[in-house]
Measured scan of single mutants.
Amino acid sequence: MQRVNMIMAESPGLITICLLGYLLSAECTVFLDHENANKILNRPKRYNSGKLEEFVQGNLERECMEEKCSFEEAREVFENTERTTEFWKQYVDGDQCESNPCLNGGSCKDDINSYECWCPFGFEGKNCELDVTCNIKNGRCEQFCKNSADNKVVCSCTEGYRLAENQKSCEPAVPFPCGRVSVSQTSKLTRAETVFPDVDYVNSTEAETILDNITQSTQSFNDFTRVVGGEDAKPGQFPWQVVLNGKVDAFCGGSIVNEKWIVTAAHCVETGVKITVVAGEHNIEETEHTEQKRNVIRIIPHHNYNAAINKYNHDIALLELDEPLVLNSYVTPICIADKEYTNIFLKFGSGYVSGWGRVFHKGRSALVLQYLRVPLVDRATCLRSTKFTIYNNMFCAGFHEGGRDSCQGDSGGPHVTEVEGTSFLTGIISWGEECAMKGKYGIYTKVSRYVNWIKEKTKLT
């Protein structure tokens, strides 16, 4: 034993070699072989497995989906700052455009905790909710729209109204504003409101030439003092309507412009014939205590009207009353817009006519005020429907199939267009061939041609 100890002390290297040989010859039971080890760690190889990531292109799944990435790591994937920024906006807080917040056709661009709407022409605001041009839906104005110097929408209202708090709607500024039905039992019968379409306001006024200088022999019209197929109006439903009495009662109609003036057809009036105007009328054979009678003290036909040349060209006249009318729910003026808007309103496509005229061709006159909704007829169809001249200051309205029309005794009465609950004068009943005849239409004086003249002559002093 002493000898062994001496050998170990003198030859430590020998001992180490012996131990190493023993270990190498022993069977290893701690580690699995290569094949079995792979069965336990069965993990798919990654895209760049075996390579240094710093030297390969980034992978979106590896960089940002398996674990949260930084902007720089995302930049490695896209290799483009702009594309990385677009991805980053949604990656950080989701897609803010998912709810489609942009209105009126706006395009949404996502941002971090926010979004941006790219608005089409005519709109602005956070969600493109603000109209900035009158060309689109009248700028959301209830009545009139004008573009300011910086191309912003400025709404306005006709006389007797003021802008509401929203700067879009119009509200009454006087007790009985024009064009409004205020009798409670008839307010439910107000005709369907007309909503502004998209309009090209630059070209809204037709490029028409008034044929002022045409000389033409007097034409022989049949029954051209021209509501057939209409309905009984309720008291106060058309408070701007008046009836004219002269040699015979209810020979023509008219509309209240203001307390002192009536507008009617020029062919209705004769110099030297006494005319009485009755406002607030409903049943011409009954006294309903809503009527107001006034005498006409002055007749002003349009300066281009000449019955000797043509009885229905420039067929418009103004009547001055001896005493002002007292405005109330049964006696209310009709609204008159400017030339541009009167023309736009007419193009809405349908209007209402009213009167006490004959209820059928050569038949009896109506006792109760009649009204009828009539569609506008395109000019080409209008011209083809008659052998008589249709001037540019006239328009056609009615039904091709016949059966409904204005008729004798309705002449001078109103053709009105309702705009968001307020009625505007767009025409004056003038003439036609018979009444409600198939293929024939009622012919009306186009008020847009005469609004400046009306307003100039009827100013209240």
Rank of each mutant, 00 (worst) to 15 (best):
K455Q: 08
I299R: 06
S329W: 05
Y450C: 01
Y305Q: 02
W118P: 00
Y341Q: 15
P120S: 07
A266V: 02
C155W: 01
E281H: 13
C335Y: 00
D212T: 15
N80K: 09
L189M: 06
E433D: 14
F238G: 02
Y330H: 10
S365G: 06
R379F: 10
N452A: 13
A317C: 05
I454W: 00
V227C: 08
R358G: 12
F71N: 15
S148Q: 12
S350N: 15
S329C: 04
E124G: 04
L369V: 07
I15R: 06
G439H: 10
S365R: 12
E124A: 04
Q143A: 02
V92L: 10
L60T: 07
S187D: 12
L14Y: 06
T29Q: 08
N147K: 15
N38Q: 13
G179K: 01
F221L: 14
I275G: 03
K89S: 10
P333L: 00
S169P: 01
F399Y: 14
N245M: 06
Y305H: 05
R379I: 11
K438H: 15
A26T: 12
I112H: 15
L103S: 07
E142V: 05
A149D: 11
G50N: 15
N104L: 00
A266K: 02
V419P: 01
V257W: 01
Q216P: 12
C18F: 15
T290N: 12
H267I: 02
K168V: 09
P333G: 03
E270R: 12
N452H: 11
T389Y: 10
E79R: 12
R226Q: 14
T29K: 10
R75G: 15
V56L: 08
I316F: 01
K347I: 03
K347N: 12
A307R: 12
C252R: 00
V273T: 13
T445N: 04
Y391I: 05
R140Q: 14
V419K: 04
E98G: 09
V326Q: 14
Q96E: 15
R46G: 13
E401D: 13
D338F: 03
Y201A: 13
E86C: 04
V296R: 01
G442Y: 05
I214N: 08
G442N: 12
T209K: 08
C117N: 00
V181Y: 07
D110L: 07
R180Q: 07
E456Y: 09
V202E: 10
I40G: 15
G21F: 13
E76R: 15
V377H: 02
S156L: 07
K362I: 03
P120W: 02
W356K: 09
G439L: 03
V419H: 12
V30F: 14
L163P: 04
K51V: 12
S423I: 05
L383E: 13
N306S: 04
V278K: 06
P120R: 05
P324M: 04
S169G: 08
V243K: 10
H302T: 02
I454D: 00
S107P: 01
C435D: 04
E433G: 11
V374H: 02
S430F: 03
G105P: 01
S182N: 10
G280Q: 02
K137F: 09
K137C: 04
D322I: 02
L19H: 02
S365N: 14
D249P: 07
L376E: 03
S220H: 06
T215I: 08
C28L: 02
S329R: 11
F121R: 04
E288Y: 04
N452C: 05
F221E: 11
T81D: 10
E86P: 14
I262L: 03
D249T: 15
Q57T: 05
T215P: 10
K68Y: 09
L367K: 14
T186L: 05
N222I: 10
D322W: 02
V228E: 11
F123H: 06
P12F: 15
L32P: 15
L425K: 00
H415M: 03
C435K: 04
D33P: 04
E323I: 08
K146P: 02
E259R: 06
I344Y: 12
Q185K: 11
T194S: 13
G439T: 09
I300Y: 06
N5P: 10
G412V: 06
R364H: 10
T276R: 10
W261E: 00
Y444E: 00
Q408T: 15
W118A: 02
T417W: 00
Q237L: 09
S169E: 11
Y201W: 09
K440S: 10
H282N: 11
L318E: 00
L318Y: 00
A9V: 08
S406H: 11
S187T: 14
V331K: 00
K109W: 04
R191H: 09
K438D: 13
K387C: 03
P12N: 11
K274G: 11
K311A: 08
I262M: 02
D232C: 08
H400V: 12
D33R: 09
C407G: 04
H302D: 02
V451D: 01
D232M: 13
E418V: 10
G413E: 02
N213W: 05
A37Q: 15
N295G: 08
F345S: 01
V174E: 09
I214A: 14
D249A: 09
K168M: 13
A436S: 12
K234S: 14
P324Q: 04
G105Y: 03
F78A: 06
H400T: 13
R298M: 03
Q408S: 12
G432Q: 08
S99V: 09
F123A: 03
R83K: 07
K260N: 07
Y450W: 00
R226N: 14
R404P: 15
K247C: 05
V153L: 08
K89R: 11
T381V: 12
G351D: 01
Y47P: 12
D322M: 03
T417Y: 02
L32S: 14
T461C: 09
I334Q: 00
Q167T: 09
E401S: 11
L189T: 07
G403H: 15
T271Q: 09
A366R: 07
C435L: 03
